[in-house]
Structures are given as C-alpha cells and as structure tokens.
Amino acid sequence: MQSFDGLDQELDQWSAAGRTVSLWWRDDDAVAATPQLTRLVAMARRHRLPLAIAAVPARMQPDLVGALSAPGLTVLQHGYAHINQAAPGGRAVECGGDRAAKDVFSELRDGMRGLMRTFGASFLPVLVPPWNRIDPGVAASLAQEGYLGLSSFGPRHHAGRGGAGSSDGAPLILPPRCAAINAHLDLLTWKGGPAFAGAEKLIRLFAERLEDRRLARTDPDEPFGILTHHLDHDEASWSFLERLLGRLGSHPAIRFQPITTLVAEAPVR
C-alpha cells in the first residue's frame, strides 16, 4: 500500500506554521443516476464531505435529480453538451472554439435555465468548461451572463500550461465579482484515454503543489481542488480516493469547504 509520508510531511509544515489549507472536491460529467455516481455520493456522505457535481445540461436524464438530492451536494454547470467546437487541429473546447461568443452564450443560457429549473437552490451558477478550457472572450463576459464563478484546472492568476484554463493557454482575465475556484489534482490521466494516474504520482503532485502555495510560488490563499470523474474510475481510482479522503479528513491542516463558501469568500477584484 502506497505511503502518504510525503504529503503528511508537507501538511505537518502547514500545521507547524499555524496555517490551514482550504480544500474542496469537484466531480465532472454527471448526466444520469449511474452506479458510479451513487458510489461517489455515498463516499462523500461516509466521509461527511461537501461535494460539487458538474452536470452536463443538454445530456441530463430525469433520474439525475434524485441521485443528487443528498445533503452537502452542490450542482455546477459543465458547459452545455460537452461537444468539441474547436477549429480543425485545435485543442478540444466547447466554451469557444470555431464559433462566435454569442452562439456559445446562447447555449450556456439555455443550460443554466435548465439547471435552475431542475435543481433549484442546489444549483450554483459556476461554469465548469469541458476539458477545462474556455476562450478568453467568453470568460470575460461570464459575470454579465449571471455566473458567480469559473472553475477550470490549475493555479489561478498564473499563466502556464493548463493553469490559465483558456483554449490557447493564454492567461484568463475574469470580470469583477466572478470567482476563480479551480481544481488542482486530477486522479486521472487522459493521454490515450482516461486512466488512474497512480498513487505515488498523485501523492507527490499533491505535496509539491501544496509546497508551491506555502512558499508563495502560487497564490498561497487559493483553495485546493481535488478533481474526480466518477464515470471513468477503475477500482484503483476508487480505492485511492477512499484512502485519500480519510487521510485528509483527519489532518488538522486541512479544512474542507463547500464551493458555496469559497465563492462567497473569494476576493473581489
């Protein structure tokens, strides 16, 4: 069984300095009440943790409502239909790509209305762009379209591969009063198809990314997001997630937060 020593040592340094890490959990691609989704929700309840579920509006099945009715769940908007709209040869993107921003927002508005009708107060208007990519022009108009935040992947306010969250890797400029609440540790790798990234690699990356915060190489106040994809987990992924959540929940340096709190407490630019 893989040792968590490296992660424990990093968290111990946070504790020794009297600091805590705000942690949150996002899961993507919810469309129906699958056995995998049931397993995920049961895990969150067993560990008594808040969970944000990114649902794909155009593909939602009626039984998704009951599957996401448990306390502690927040529903986010995962694009519209999770369809690649990139220009030929471009990186996969739905929130932008080879079409005008007005066409993107026409879909997103329809998706938001559907999620509001379906989930009511459990829905939080935070956009999770498919493939964690969004065109800068679309991102810049999110607040006026009613979104309270954007959740992509990588350190916020830091350019670099994946960290910016735009379709071309350029830094994103979000409008005032639109929070950036990103994920930072994906349990899966995607090259060649989804697969478990491996316990050793994930523990190392987790510790390194927390060290970056502690030493202010990235935003030290940014919440740290764990990213899962319930439909693509194998048994190794589920087993590691169970152990990781148990380990984190017992460490004094970790403070699990619901995304509703993180959005409300996000600094206003």
Rank of each mutant, 00 (worst) to 15 (best):
P62C: 04
H184A: 03
S166F: 09
G96C: 13
F256M: 13
H158F: 11
W25N: 00
S141V: 03
R133S: 14
D232W: 13
S22A: 15
M60L: 13
L68T: 04
W14Q: 00
A17F: 12
A81C: 04
E208R: 08
G246W: 06
S3E: 05
I173S: 15
L124G: 04
Y80Q: 09
Q2M: 10
L108Q: 01
G160C: 07
E10F: 06
R48Q: 15
D212N: 03
G137F: 12
C178Y: 08
A253C: 07
G163F: 08
F224I: 11
A199Y: 13
L64R: 01
E211A: 03
A70L: 04
Q144F: 07
F105I: 06
G90V: 02
L248F: 03
G72K: 04
A17N: 05
I134H: 09
A180M: 08
H47Q: 14
D98S: 01
V268K: 12
L73A: 03
L262S: 07
D28L: 13
E265H: 14
S122A: 13
R217S: 09
I259G: 07
L7M: 09
L174N: 10
G6A: 09
L148R: 05
D219Y: 05
A195F: 13
G146H: 10
L148Q: 06
P57V: 15
V268E: 12
R26V: 02
L124D: 01
G192P: 09
L49C: 11
A32D: 11
F4R: 00
E265C: 15
G163Y: 02
R217G: 02
Y80E: 11
P194N: 12
R133P: 15
Q61A: 12
T20G: 11
A30F: 14
E200S: 13
L248P: 08
A164V: 07
L210P: 05
R48W: 14
L244H: 12
Q2R: 10
Q77I: 06
L11T: 15
L245R: 04
A159M: 04
A179G: 02
D221N: 05
E235I: 15
H158T: 14
A179D: 00
A266G: 03
F256T: 09
N84Q: 05
M43K: 12
G160I: 08
L37V: 15
P88T: 09
G169Y: 12
K191M: 12
R26T: 00
V93D: 00
V126S: 04
V41W: 06
S141D: 08
L210F: 04
S106D: 10
Q9P: 04
L202E: 06
P129F: 09
P125E: 02
R113T: 08
M43E: 14
A183H: 02
G72V: 14
M60N: 03
G225R: 02
R26M: 03
A159G: 11
L262I: 08
A195C: 12
H251L: 07
P252G: 00
S22R: 06
P125T: 01
P223V: 12
S239R: 15
P35R: 06
R214Q: 07
W14S: 00
F123T: 01
R214G: 02
